[in-house]
Amino acid sequence: MSTATTHTMSGRKVFAMFAAGFSIIIGVNIAMAVNAVRTFPGLEVDNSYVASQDFDDRRAAQEALGWTIEASYDGTALRIDMTDMAGNALTPADLAVRVGRPTMEAQDLDGRAAVGHAMPVHLEPGRWRIDVSATAPDGTPVEKRILLWVRA
């Protein structure tokens, strides 16, 4: 004699499967949304309309200087090089450097650097954003954002 067992699908089992599936989906969505908001502030300026009012004038003044700003990383230190139109090295008195990831502020580092000199810093592999700001001798503010890729 053989006994055949049959499994019937009850309404409670179907409801439990749907509830478990949707709970997983909703849980993952909530976790992703929380991490997205926590790691990216989303603001570059407090009021974009006000910042845009003199953007073109500031950009034209900065471009008229003809400065070239470059960043390099050798594995132990970050180096900022600035040159004028003729290729002469520049040394602004108030150079400020902010190093961080493009998408989060958790690893941002602020510092002062001397142009042409190494700024000791350890950067993990990946993409980094270097924000350089200085003031020209004539009072023109100079700002440059440099994206730097650090290889493993």
Score class of each variant (00 low, 15 high):
residue 13 K to S: 11
residue 13 K to T: 11
residue 14 V to K: 02
residue 15 F to L: 15
residue 15 F to Q: 03
residue 15 F to M: 05
residue 16 A to G: 03
residue 16 A to M: 14
residue 16 A to W: 03
residue 16 A to D: 08
residue 17 M to E: 10
residue 17 M to W: 13
residue 18 F to M: 14
residue 18 F to H: 08
residue 18 F to G: 13
residue 18 F to S: 09
residue 18 F to L: 14
residue 19 A to S: 09
residue 19 A to R: 01
residue 19 A to C: 06
residue 19 A to M: 04
residue 20 A to T: 02
residue 20 A to F: 03
residue 21 G to D: 02
residue 22 F to H: 06
residue 23 S to N: 12
residue 23 S to R: 06
residue 24 I to Y: 08
residue 25 I to W: 05
residue 25 I to E: 06
residue 25 I to F: 11
residue 25 I to L: 15
residue 25 I to T: 08
residue 25 I to H: 10
residue 25 I to S: 10
residue 25 I to N: 11
residue 26 I to M: 07
residue 26 I to V: 15
residue 26 I to R: 05
residue 27 G to C: 00
residue 27 G to S: 03
residue 28 V to A: 13
residue 29 N to C: 01
residue 29 N to V: 05
residue 29 N to A: 11
residue 29 N to I: 07
residue 29 N to E: 07
residue 30 I to W: 05
residue 30 I to A: 00
residue 30 I to C: 01
residue 31 A to S: 13
residue 31 A to F: 14
residue 31 A to K: 10
residue 32 M to I: 13
residue 32 M to Y: 12
residue 33 A to H: 07
residue 33 A to M: 06
residue 33 A to S: 07
residue 33 A to K: 12
residue 33 A to V: 12
residue 33 A to C: 07
residue 34 V to W: 08
residue 34 V to E: 06
residue 34 V to C: 09
residue 35 N to E: 09
residue 35 N to H: 11
residue 35 N to K: 12
residue 36 A to W: 00
residue 36 A to L: 03
residue 37 V to S: 09
residue 37 V to R: 10
residue 37 V to K: 06
residue 38 R to A: 14
residue 38 R to Y: 06
residue 38 R to H: 01
residue 38 R to I: 08
residue 39 T to R: 05
residue 40 F to C: 04
residue 40 F to M: 03
residue 41 P to K: 04
residue 41 P to L: 03
residue 41 P to F: 02
residue 41 P to R: 02
residue 41 P to D: 02
residue 42 G to Y: 12
residue 42 G to E: 14
residue 42 G to A: 12
residue 42 G to W: 14
residue 43 L to D: 11
residue 43 L to H: 11
residue 44 E to T: 12
residue 44 E to C: 06
residue 44 E to G: 11
residue 44 E to Q: 10
residue 44 E to H: 07
residue 45 V to Y: 09
residue 45 V to F: 07
residue 45 V to M: 05
residue 45 V to K: 03
residue 45 V to P: 00
residue 46 D to F: 02
residue 47 N to F: 04
residue 47 N to I: 09
residue 47 N to D: 15
residue 47 N to K: 08
residue 48 S to D: 00
residue 48 S to R: 01
residue 48 S to P: 00
residue 49 Y to L: 06
residue 49 Y to G: 09
